[in-house]
């Protein structure tokens, strides 16, 4: 019987499900979908779909670990582990010598410092406000009437990034409106917002970040953000392969371990 392991990352904006082989040797199949209200049902459907694609059934899954903001809501998972731990495991699989992880998601951002053995030495997460998260970019895209992933093309054309002085997303939106009204080019505003997000994350990360620095999360998919981060940090940044899936991959790797020494999701 084929045994696979599943990791479910119930993030604030998207649900990610990953199936791996024993030992988490590679991603067999994965899916990303926008979040819904019933995360338990939605992630169950996604898992079933992935299994169908592989011609497998739920009984072929050895264990399931849920992670992310909604991890405790995934009732069929065998265990729940935080995104900090899962991200470290997932990144280590993709970039074995990674020493720093910068993860920027839809509603939060975090910086993990890893030990040489890949374990988490320490981490910081953004405060309650949405500054330094993908939400900032979403607000910008909505205001400019463009798709999120199109922001990179716009920022590439910028000659002079606009200065966004407010870190609060609500106030920054007002600034964006003001800049647009003043005739500042959209590409300069995009470059300015990307620089502001990167600068916020760099401030949160602190000094002396060990390298290599790996960039994960949905925002890593937005063209221009890697460069913005490199500029803010003054260091090279590597975007993980499948940056949106590393956390779910880490969860799947943990699921494949025996014994599963993590807390039950509803404990």
């Amino acid at each position: 019987m084929t045994v696979l392991y599943a990791g479910i990352d119930a993030g604030s904006r998207t649900l990610k499900v990953v199936l791996t082989e024993p030992g988490g040797r590679g991603i067999v199949s994965a899916v990303v979908r926008d979040q819904g209200i019933d995360q338990d049902a939605l992630s169950g459907e996604l898992l079933e779909r992935l299994l169908d694609q592989q011609g497998l059934r739920r009984g072929d899954v050895g264990a399931i670990v849920a992670t992310g903001y909604g991890r405790r809501l995934i009732r069929f998972a065998d265990a729940a582990v935080t995104e900090v731990t899962c991200q470290a495991w997932g990144v280590r699989r993709c970039v074995p010598d990674a020493r720093t992880v910068i993860d920027i998601g839809g509603q939060d951002s975090k910086v993990l410092r890893l030990k040489p053995d890949g374990g988490v030495a320490d981490f910081v997460m953004n405060d309650r406000c949405a500054a330094g998260t993908g939400r900032f970019l979403e607000v910008l895209a909505a205001r400019l009437g463009v798709r999120l992933l199109a922001l990179g093309d716009l920022s590439d054309r910028s000659c002079r990034a606009a200065t966004i002085s407010n870190m609060c997303v609500v106030f920054a939106e007002t600034e964006i409106i003001g800049l647009l009204a003043s005739g500042v080019a959209a590409e300069d505003i995009v470059a300015g917002v990307q620089a502001a997000v990167a600068s916020r994350v760099a401030a949160m990360a602190g000094r002396n970040l060990p390298e290599p620095i790996v960039f994960t999360g949905g925002v890593a998919l937005v063209p221009g953000m890697q460069t913005a981060l490199e500029t803010a940090l003054g260091k090279p940044v590597v975007v993980a392969a499948e940056p949106q899936l590393t956390c779910a991959l880490g969860a799947a790797i943990l699921a494949s371990q025996r014994p599963l020494e993590v807390r039950p999701p509803h404990g």
């Binding site: 320490d122 997460m125 993590v262």
Partner: peptide, 28 residues
């Protein structure tokens, strides 16, 4: 950050504290 009523923030506070506990206990 802990305001007088944290009910709405419970998931994010839980994540931070739980991640701290995981970090202190285990390493890959």
């Amino acid at each position: 950050e802990v305001p007088p009523i944290t009910d709405a923030l419970e998931p994010s506070l839980r994540t931070r504290l739980e991640a701290l506990v995981e970090t202190a206990t285990a390493a890959p």
